[in-house]
Simulated assay, not measured.
Amino acid sequence: MIKACLRGLFHRTSKGETAIKDISTVEGKYRWFTDEDFGLKVKVPADWENMYNQTFTQFSSKNGRQWLKIKITSKEDGLTLDDWVKKHEQLYRDVVNESYLKVDPEVKSSTIAGVPAKEQKFSSSDGSGWYPEQDFFFFKGDYKVYVEIAYDPEATPEQAAELIQTIRQSLSVDTGAMNPALGDITDDELIDRDAMATVKIPGLNFSISIPEHWKETSGAEGTRMYEFTGGNAIVIAGPGRLSEVRTEVEKVIKEDSSSYSYVVKESKAISLAGMQGYKIVAQGKNGGTRFEKTFYLLEKGKNAYMIAFTISDWVKTKSMENRVQKIVDSIQIGQ
């Protein structure tokens, strides 16, 4: 079981599904997109694909290097555009490692959808390339609208300008036409990323705290798997010995070294949750994306436990390090 789970620990993505209405008409290189529920209308490149995300509108080029994201949420009381821009920048800095993020310090005032707006440039990387983007922030009635336009770094300044101008000049949001059933739309960026939920594995007296915003992807017997931006985590508990689990982990790392260029940076005995255990840290590369895998291996009675994290370098921030340490410190195994 452990070997099968290890195979699934690498970078995976999931697509949300929703029943968004896509009413499109093509005009030259662009097509109109209309989302009647949000009173939204905008021009997007004709060959971009609608990603049908559940929480925002997103279109992407076929190579994934350019995209448009439009997110409409309820405006918090007392929020100003300047405050919002600052919060957004801080979120980027909390989520993306500073070596993989460039922030233009200039915040410009402009107009979009007929109202005052703020705009700022960012550029981020996952290690395989840089993704420059132009972000817009504006209010419409009781809602705030965030627009993110990522363009090809190899595009000429004229090509990038044409894409940005076409989108900003065509975009409109009619709050009066919005579906009243939408009600209050919570901005998921406002979540407490350090809020934890206790997870227990029945019959094994095992518990661990996991960030509430991590997405659980598997809850099979004795196993819990989670995904988060730039990585994933797995918890496995069941009959076994520490020596057996360690041997299996080392075997998988060795077998996959040709594919992921693994280098074992740490391999040592540890004391954790009042027990003796073992820790293995291996660094690897998936395409151009570097990542680190950390395994905590424990044993108590007739059961063995493995808690493992895969974290891409581009999300390895101080906040992420603190979050992982908080998880490790929460491990409890009873009698």
Rank of each mutant, 00 (worst) to 15 (best):
K302Q: 12
G231E: 09
F309M: 09
K215A: 13
F33P: 00
I164C: 02
E292M: 12
I167W: 02
F10H: 15
W314T: 05
T289A: 14
S125D: 10
F228R: 06
E76V: 10
S172M: 07
I210G: 02
K15E: 14
N322S: 12
W67G: 15
L9T: 04
E227T: 09
R224S: 07
D126P: 00
R193K: 12
M275E: 08
I185W: 09
D82C: 01
I253T: 08
Q335N: 13
S267Y: 00
P105Y: 00
D135G: 01
E250P: 04
V281T: 15
K43N: 02
E292W: 05
R290F: 10
E106Y: 11
E244K: 08
Y146K: 03
D184V: 14
K300W: 05
A304C: 09
E133N: 12
Y131M: 01
R12Q: 12
E106N: 13
R12P: 00
I112W: 03
E189S: 14
E49Q: 13
A19G: 03
F295P: 04
A308T: 07
E133P: 00
T217D: 06
E162A: 12
A155T: 05
I327G: 08
A19V: 12
P180E: 14
F59Y: 15
N232W: 08
E216Y: 06
T25W: 08
K302W: 04
K300F: 04
W214P: 03
L81Q: 07
Q165P: 01
K71T: 01
Q276P: 02
V107A: 06
V85C: 02
M178E: 12
K254W: 07
A155L: 03
S312K: 07
S99P: 04
Y278G: 00
I307L: 15
S124G: 01
N179A: 08
E76G: 05
G287P: 09
T317W: 01
T310K: 08
I327C: 14
G8Q: 10
T55F: 14
K254H: 11
Q283P: 00
R65E: 07
V147Q: 05
L272C: 11
D35E: 15
C5G: 13
K285P: 05
Q332T: 12
A195T: 09
K86C: 03
S124E: 02
S267T: 02
V173L: 03
A46S: 15
P180V: 09
F10Y: 13
G238P: 05
P239M: 05
V44T: 02
V264P: 01
W48E: 08
L163E: 01
V245Y: 08
S74R: 02
T198L: 10
E266T: 14
T34V: 15
E154V: 06
G39M: 10
H88Q: 13
A150K: 07
F56E: 10
L6Y: 05
A155K: 05
E248R: 10
T34G: 04
Q169R: 14
G127D: 06
S259E: 12
V252G: 01
L81A: 10
L40K: 11
Y30R: 01
G274E: 06
L204Q: 12
Y305T: 05
I23R: 12
